[in-house]
Amino acid sequence: MRKLLLEGLLRRPLTEPAPETEDAALAALAAALERAARRRLGRSLSIREVDAGSCNGCELEIHALNNAFYDVERFGIRFVASPRHADVLLVTGPVTKNMREALARTYNAMPNPKWVVAAGDCALDGGCFAGSYAVVGGVSQVVPVDLHIPGCPPSPTALLKGLLALLESVGSARTHPSTGSG
């Protein structure tokens, strides 16, 4: 136990800008996101995630944002348990009919200003599940979407870039930005 803790202290942390350009670029990206959040919101960014019937692939990559390579929390990006504490609703999945009401309710429980980010190809228009009797076919059918992040699933990098683009594109004073699926 102690050995691992010590190693954790002494060894170069994984999250420092690493020699690989990819990791350095990631750190820069997350830092930019933090600055944008402070500028736009005056504080860090709180995200409430809702799985509206995804295949769970998108969730895995959202989880990865918290691993030591990406570690978005150190940039003040937090995933919160209650919609009442959230600025951003991050939605995955084609929105199944069985999840439509739960998604709408979660959105309605969020205070203004609020933004919706639809993550993953099937969150745009249902993706390969479009046309099914059991699927609404895209997040924007149920709640207004401010930004869509493509990918199946979007990589952690793509997710970070998307969140940054969102913050850069919105004004701080507006209660609700223009909608559209980005």
Partner: peptide, 8 residues
């Protein structure tokens, strides 16, 4: 809740 009708 996640039923997407894959088989159909």
């Amino acid at each position: 809740y996640a039923h997407k009708g894959v088989e159909s």
